[in-house]
Amino acid sequence: MYEFAYHRPNSVRKAASLTASGEAKLLAGGQTLLPTMKQRLAAPDALVDLAGIEVLQGIELKGRTLHIGAMTRHADVASNATVREALPALASLAGGIGDPHVRAMGTLGGSIANNDPAADYPAACLGLGATIVTNKRRIAADDFFTGMFETALEDGEIITKVLFPLPRRAAYAKFDNPASRYALVGVFVSKRGRDIRVAVTGAGPCVFRVPAMEEALGRRFSPKSLEDISVDAGDLNSDIHASAEYRAHLVGVMARRAVLAT
């Protein structure tokens, strides 16, 4: 790692002003950023640690919307009684990220800001129609994840929390890469009134929805409705872990498993 300065502000406003200058980067759980800096793929001149900002922590149910602070750790989402009761699909998704030590540090905000093509939280945000709140504005999940490791965030913009509207039914089915535990393919399915969402992570360069599956589930919410629907392998990733064709196949299998589990 190259040298850098370290700051630990106690407010979002101070964090924003510290990141406005130079090549500073926000530090959340560090589970992606620090390994990247060790490899010298990132070389910020300063890190602005968000861990000292109280308003970024915590979980609260307000009416039919679950508010989760950006600095909430994966382990705390997984074990939180409110999340387990109100949105168990999200608790189990968080409990399936990486390993216990990664979950003790990694955060919701860090995960979605990073938008790894194989990360789990982007599927939950898109699959539930969440709203991402920053220090500047509110961004619908549909507009937030813009490409591989790309988001709608501007330089220095800080995610403060994510709002998840509670669905009537929801489930996440993940086929983990056995080595890394990232999603080879993960599918998040939810139903809230007439709004049905199917969001896929791991398969393509960025999390995406499958409108054909959503329409079919709108006619009848059953795994059977998905039997004849396939996604085009042409748009999917191919690497040492799996071919695009295999990933396309897994999208169908995981989507049916998710529907069955709702």
């Binding site: 560090g30 890190l47 990664v102 003790a104």
Partner: peptide
């Protein structure tokens, strides 16, 4: 009280 990978966190944190 939590298990973490000490190679993936900074002492100053």
């Amino acid at each position: 009280g939590r298990a973490v990978k000490s190679c993936t966190t900074l002492a100053v944190q």
